[in-house]
């Protein structure tokens, strides 16, 4: 009986990783092969550029500004990583981010202690995710449409309940306020914690593995007994919870809530961060680390354009072009890395 050898007879076993010398070329190879490598390079590029172009860039105050700006993008983007890996999308995460402090405000206004109001609000966010998930999975409506519908519904709910009048956020005082948004580094530290949890879930747990399996081969995963529907619903609940939580922190930080803000303006940068960071829109592949760097990229871009005084009229044009260039560089370098891997 011949051995069922699946390697070509002539090919020697590939050398073990540890045995390879650390020459410059293998170092470059290793870096390029990392999925996050390209976005790191592009982000370092814009940081260096703005650092040189503006003396205000590398100041503590400016870095705090960037950190506060990117916290929500990173958290929503990390949530989208789970959803995108499943080959779904959640457009409502931004509106959940805006709606949850309103819910908290209304409960507080009705006389509930703030801590309870926040806890109940987070439950409300989880229920929104549950609805998104159930309608997507069991009623077979594309998640793009489900979550877009949810976005409009929540936007309408806020307008109705607020009578379209801006209010001040409660909870912006004392030690509580400092921990929940007022402290300069508060939101970004919360965001880092949430991203770490997301990374652990995706990389180290059975649940995370099953997210990848569900997104990579829905039928195959279901055949193997992975509860694919439940996993999708759980992920919609997770992104809603995370978005709602960071929404409360930002509302406390900004200290006021404007019912006219629209969630799509919030969620789309999150999705861009995820995709620029190396997460595929087609499912099966996603990186939380890449998303964090993608968020830094967007934050630096927004901040840098402000610092060097790009006029408001040119701002979105410039931002759009830079994002497109970054994405093209990303896909080109990724295919280069794939070729090197063979």
């Amino acid at each position: 009986m011949a051995q069922a050898s699946l390697t070509t007879p002539a090919a020697p076993a590939p050398p073990h990783r540890a045995e390879r010398g650390l020459s410059a070329s293998t170092l470059i190879r290793t870096i390029v092969q990392r999925r996050e490598a390209t976005v790191v390079a592009v982000t370092l590029g814009v940081i260096i550029y703005f650092g040189i172009a503006s003396s205000a860039f590398f100041t503590t105050a400016n870095i705090i500004t960037i950190a506060q700006y990117i916290a929500a993008i990173a958290v929503i983007g990390a949530g989208e990583v789970l959803i995108l890996v499943l080959a779904e999308i959640d457009l409502s995460a931004g509106q959940v981010y805006l709606t949850s402090p309103w819910f908290m405000y209304l409960l507080w206004h009705a006389g509930m202690p703030l801590g309870w109001a926040i806890a109940l609000t987070l439950v409300f966010c989880i229920i929104i995710g549950l609805i998104n998930g159930v309608v997507t999975v069991w009623l077979n409506v594309p998640s793009l449409i489900v979550t877009l519908g949810m976005t409009y519904a929540l936007f309408g709910l806020v307008l109705v309940e607020s009578n379209a009048i801006q209010v001040n956020t409660p909870g912006a005082t004392g030690r509580f306020g400092w921990a929940f948004g007022i402290g300069s580094w508060s939101t970004i530290l919360w965001a880092l914690g949430i991203l770490t949890i997301g990374w652990v879930i995706l990389k180290r747990t059975r649940f995370g593995l099953h997210i990848t399996a569900t997104g990579g081969n829905l039928l195959g995963a279901a055949e193997a007994g992975v509860p694919v529907r439940r996993i999708k619903v759980y992920c919609f609940m997770i992104i809603s919870l995370a978005s709602g939580f960071i929404g409360i922190l930002d509302a406390i930080r900004i200290q006021s809530m404007n019912p006219g803000n629209t969630g799509l303006d919030i969620v789309l940068p999150g999705i861009v961060a995820a995709v620029v960071g190396g997460t595929a829109l087609t499912g099966g592949r996603g990186t939380i680390v890449g998303t964090a760097i993608g968020a830094i990229f967007l934050g630096v871009l927004e901040d840098g354009f402000n610092l060097i005084g790009v006029s408001a009229n040119w701002f979105y044009l410039a931002e759009g072009v830079v994002i497109l260039i970054a994405m093209v560089a990303n896909t080109q370098l990724t295919s280069l890395a794939a070729r090197l891997r063979r």
């Binding site: 180290r204 747990t205 059975r206 649940f207 593995l209 099953h210 990848t212 399996a213 997104g215 990579g216 081969n217 195959g220 995963a221 193997a224 007994g225 992975v226 099966g284 592949r285």
Partner: peptide, 25 residues
């Protein structure tokens, strides 16, 4: 699943885990 490794495919849905319900791989 194309994106999972040989090992991960071999153990799909019968993964060995620790920490009980946490499902640490």
């Amino acid at each position: 699943v194309p994106q999972l490794t040989v090992t991960q495919n071999l153990f799909l849905n019968r993964e060995l885990t620790s920490l009980g319900r946490m499902g640490w791989l």
